[in-house]
Amino acid sequence: MTRHHKQERHQALQDEIVKNPFSTDEELAKRFSVSVSTIRLDRTDLGIPELRERTRAVAHEAYGTLKSLEEQELIGLLTELRIGKLGRSEMLIEENMVLDKARVARGHHLFAQANSLAIALVDNEMAVTGSVDLKFLRPAHLGETVIAEGKVLKRKGNKYWVDITAQVDQEDVLVGHWILFGFDEEISL
């Protein structure tokens, strides 16, 4: 490959990793029609760390901005969070999450991922779910990674309207519309 093509690939590789920092070397190799070894060499040349380090860095940055819940209360791996705007989390469907016979994720795991992401988007010290209009569109199977993306549509006072879409391989698994309430002091009963 000529130097010119290599430079173009390097630029495209950098752009792709900025857009999707969780791309594996195998996925990148397929996307750029080169070998996995070439991608690894390109990453080394560009100073781009391997997937595990990129994931750790992105997650650390996202968790540092959490406001309305504690890190251990979030279901899934938070990969992006801009409070009051948008967020993203990933969750691998593991053995303890699936129905024994069907081998698909129990609905409450998918809901928990989406609900905790919605709460994380609220720009208050505490948040509670007011209502949810939710549809499950297809099962998530053992071993699949569910990517939930959320967006704050509107805020009026302490009330937030949030849309969450969860996908596996760009196919919708769950879509929902949340109304949440944020508070900056303890809720008295």
Rank of each mutant, 00 (worst) to 15 (best):
T2G: 15
T2K: 15
H4F: 11
H4G: 12
H4Y: 12
Q7N: 12
Q7H: 11
R9A: 07
R9C: 05
H10D: 14
Q11V: 08
A12T: 06
L13I: 07
L13Y: 06
Q14P: 08
D15E: 08
E16T: 07
I17Q: 02
I17K: 05
K19Y: 00
D25L: 10
L28C: 09
A29Q: 10
K30S: 09
K30V: 04
F32D: 07
F32W: 01
F32R: 00
F32A: 02
S33L: 00
V34Q: 10
S35Y: 05
S35T: 13
T38N: 07
T38V: 08
R40G: 09
R40D: 10
L41I: 13
D42E: 12
T44C: 11
L46S: 14
L46H: 12
L46P: 13
G47A: 14
I48A: 11
P49D: 03
L51I: 14
R52K: 13
E53G: 15
E53I: 13
R54D: 11
A57M: 15
V58T: 14
H60Q: 15
E61G: 14
E61M: 15
E61D: 15
G64S: 13
T65S: 10
L66A: 09
K67L: 03
S68F: 02
E71C: 02
Q72G: 06
E73I: 12
E73M: 13
L74T: 08
I75H: 08
L77G: 09
L77A: 10
L78M: 09
T79I: 04
T79R: 03
T79G: 11
E80P: 01
L81V: 00
R82Y: 01
R82E: 03
R82K: 07
R82W: 00
G84V: 01
L86C: 13
G87N: 07
M91H: 00
L92N: 07
E95R: 09
N96L: 08
M97A: 05
M97I: 03
D100R: 12
D100N: 04
K101Y: 08
R103F: 03
R103S: 09
A105R: 00
R106S: 11
R106K: 13
G107L: 07
L110P: 01
A112P: 13
Q113V: 01
A114D: 07
A114C: 12
L117K: 03
A118V: 02
A120V: 02
A120E: 06
L121W: 04
L121D: 09
D123W: 03
N124P: 08
E125L: 06
V128H: 02
T129I: 06
G130K: 06
S131F: 06
V132S: 05
K135E: 15
R138N: 14
A140K: 02
H141W: 00
G143N: 04
G143Q: 02
A148T: 03
A148V: 01
G150Y: 01
K151L: 04
K151N: 08
V152E: 07
K156M: 04
G157H: 02
G157S: 06
N158Y: 02
D163I: 06
T165D: 08
V168Q: 03
D169Q: 03
Q170S: 08
D172C: 04
D172M: 05
H177I: 01
I179G: 07
I179F: 01
F181G: 15
E185K: 15
E185L: 09
I187E: 15
I187F: 15
I187D: 15
